Simulated scan of single mutants.
Amino acid sequence: MAFHEIRFPANLSFGSVGGPERRTEIVSMTNGHEERRTPWAHSRRRYDAGLGLRSLDDVAALIAFFEARAGQMHGFRWKDWADYKSSAPSKKVSFRDQPLGKGDGVRRAFVLRKGYASGPSSYWRPITKPVTGTVLAGTGEVELRDGLDFEVNPATGVITFAVAPEDGAPVTAGFEFDVPVRFDTDRIAVSVASFQAGDLPQVPVLEVRL
C-alpha cells in the first residue's frame, strides 16, 4: 500500500465522529476473576467521514478524494479535530509541550510523540505525520529555529538537530499533527434524495500503522 501525503479536506472531517480504539482480550476464570491482556501496544483510531458532509458539493469532493485514493488502496492524512496538537485544545502550541527525551551529546534524531496521562498511568503515542510548518523544538529550555537548528521529516515525524543536544539536556517539541488513515470500505453509496432528507452515507476511515 502506498501512502499519499495529502490531507482529507479538513472542512469535511470537521463534524465527523471517531476516536481511539483498544483491543483487550479478557479471560474469565472459574473463580470469577478475570485475566486481561492486550496484543496492541498502541491504540487505533476510527472515524466516519460521512457525518461531516453538509452539501452535494461536499459529496462530490468526497467521491473525488475516494477515487483518487482508489478506495482502500492508498493511505492519506486525516485531521482529528478533537486531538490534533501537542498542547491542550485551548492553548497555543509551545516548544515545551512534549518531552522527547534527553540528549547524550551524540544522538541527533528524535521521534515526535505525545503523552496521555491520568493518575499514575501514561501512554506515549508516536506522531508520524506532523503538519509542515507547525513544529517547534528546544533543548535545555532554549527554543531553536526550524530549518537552521533542526529539521523535521513530515512523512515520518523524525526531528533531526544540527548539533546533538548536550548530555542530560531535555529535548522538547510542540506541533500540530495528522492521523495516517485509509478508507475502510471500497464502496460509497449516496442517494441524492436521501441525502437531502438528512440521511448521510457511512464512510468509515481507519488509522493505519506505518
Rank of each mutant, 00 (worst) to 15 (best):
residue 1 M to D: 05
residue 1 M to A: 10
residue 3 F to D: 12
residue 4 H to P: 00
residue 5 E to D: 09
residue 7 R to L: 07
residue 7 R to E: 10
residue 7 R to G: 07
residue 9 P to K: 13
residue 10 A to K: 11
residue 11 N to S: 05
residue 12 L to P: 01
residue 14 F to L: 15
residue 17 V to S: 07
residue 21 E to N: 14
residue 24 T to E: 14
residue 28 S to I: 15
residue 32 G to V: 11
residue 34 E to F: 03
residue 35 E to V: 12
residue 40 W to I: 01
residue 41 A to M: 11
residue 42 H to A: 10
residue 44 R to S: 04
residue 47 Y to I: 01
residue 48 D to F: 04
residue 50 G to M: 13
residue 51 L to Y: 14
residue 52 G to W: 08
residue 53 L to C: 12
residue 54 R to V: 07
residue 54 R to C: 12
residue 56 L to M: 12
residue 57 D to G: 07
residue 59 V to A: 12
residue 61 A to C: 05
residue 62 L to T: 07
residue 64 A to N: 10
residue 74 H to P: 01
residue 75 G to P: 10
residue 76 F to A: 02
residue 78 W to E: 14
residue 79 K to M: 13
residue 82 A to T: 13
residue 84 Y to C: 11
residue 84 Y to E: 04
residue 87 S to T: 11
residue 88 A to G: 02
residue 89 P to V: 08
residue 90 S to M: 03
residue 92 K to A: 08
residue 92 K to M: 03
residue 94 S to C: 12
residue 95 F to R: 04
residue 95 F to W: 11
residue 98 Q to H: 06
residue 102 K to M: 00
residue 102 K to Y: 07
residue 103 G to D: 09
residue 109 A to W: 02
residue 110 F to G: 01
residue 112 L to I: 04
residue 114 K to N: 03
residue 114 K to G: 00
residue 123 Y to S: 06
residue 125 R to T: 03
residue 131 V to H: 09
residue 131 V to G: 03
residue 134 T to V: 07
residue 134 T to P: 03
residue 134 T to E: 02
residue 138 G to R: 09
residue 139 T to L: 01
residue 141 E to W: 05
residue 143 E to A: 14
residue 145 R to F: 00
residue 148 L to N: 03
residue 151 E to Y: 10
residue 154 P to F: 07
residue 155 A to E: 11
residue 156 T to F: 05
residue 158 V to C: 02
residue 159 I to N: 00
residue 162 A to L: 13
residue 162 A to H: 13
residue 162 A to C: 09
residue 164 A to Q: 10
residue 169 A to Q: 11
residue 170 P to E: 07
residue 171 V to K: 00
residue 174 G to K: 06
residue 178 D to F: 10
residue 189 A to E: 15
residue 190 V to E: 07
residue 191 S to H: 14
residue 194 S to M: 15
residue 197 A to Q: 15
residue 197 A to D: 08
residue 197 A to E: 14
residue 201 P to E: 14
residue 201 P to M: 15
residue 207 E to S: 12
residue 207 E to F: 10
